[in-house]
Computed example of a mutant assay.
Amino acid sequence: MEKIGFGGGCHWCTEGVFQAIRGVQQVDQGFIRSDAPADTWAEAVVIHFDAAQIDLATLLEIHLRTHSAAKPFVPGGKYRTAAYTFNDAQASMLEGAISSLALAFDKPLSTTVLPFREFKPSDARYQNYYATDPQRPFCKRYIDPKLAYIRKNFAKVTRSV
């Protein structure tokens, strides 16, 4: 089992998106810190995945396409578009993949590759936010469109509904 962290907008949305992907075994929702200037807590998830079922490049592309990956970094902000790596090989691979994928976006990507340093889970009441009540207005407005997008554009790796 491999791990990767992703931050980008609300962690409720990010959690819901990756829980819908085949090969993702677990999604830990909470806050991640890295090294300065990204050492403040930011909303993010840690994804535990089986690389034989889903590759890291596909997970990255799903991440980039389901949040505002061109949003500029704001030091101290709780939203950071980032990939948090657990080893140097992941960092190298992701930096190259972001450069390649950037050509397919209208705006320059601001997603950064950062070393994972620390994680703290969000409150239990927010865990599995979409899975526990997909009828919430927030889920209908923000998460459902992301799920519809991945079901359409990443159908081969999306779990059955």
Rank of each mutant, 00 (worst) to 15 (best):
P145Q: 12
A148D: 05
A51H: 09
P121R: 14
S34R: 06
F119S: 07
V27H: 08
A44K: 06
T111A: 09
A36K: 05
L109Q: 12
A52K: 15
A155Q: 12
F18V: 06
I54K: 01
F18S: 05
F73W: 15
Y84S: 05
E43V: 10
N128C: 02
G16R: 03
N87K: 05
V45M: 09
P134H: 07
L94Q: 08
A51L: 03
R33P: 00
N153H: 15
V17G: 00
T66I: 00
F31A: 04
F138H: 08
P37W: 05
I54A: 03
P75Y: 09
A36W: 01
V24I: 10
I32Q: 01
L60M: 06
C13R: 01
G96H: 14
E95T: 12
Y84N: 06
L59F: 08
G77T: 08
D55P: 09
F105S: 06
K120G: 01
F31W: 15
K78F: 09
Y84I: 04
Y79I: 07
D144I: 00
T112E: 15
T40N: 12
Y129R: 03
S122F: 07
V27G: 03
A51S: 12
K71F: 08
F49V: 05
R141W: 02
F18P: 01
L60D: 01
H48F: 04
A155N: 11
R80T: 13
H63N: 13
Q25A: 13
V27E: 04
L114R: 15
F31V: 08
E95A: 06
I62F: 00
P145D: 13
I98D: 08
G30C: 07
N128V: 01
I32H: 02
K152S: 07
T14E: 10
K107P: 04
A91M: 08
S110M: 14
Y142E: 11
P145I: 03
L64H: 01
Q25C: 12
S122K: 03
D39Q: 06
Q25K: 10
P115Q: 10
P72L: 10
A124E: 12
F86G: 05
A83E: 07
R80M: 10
T66Y: 00
Y142P: 01
F154A: 00
P121A: 11
I98S: 05
L114I: 10
A89H: 12
D50T: 06
S68D: 15
W41N: 13
Q127S: 05
R117T: 11
Y142C: 10
P115V: 07
V27A: 06
G96R: 13
V45I: 14
L114T: 12
Y149N: 00
A155E: 12
D39L: 03
P145T: 05
D88A: 08
Q53G: 07
G30M: 08
P37G: 07
V17H: 00
V46L: 14
A131N: 05
L147G: 00
H11N: 15
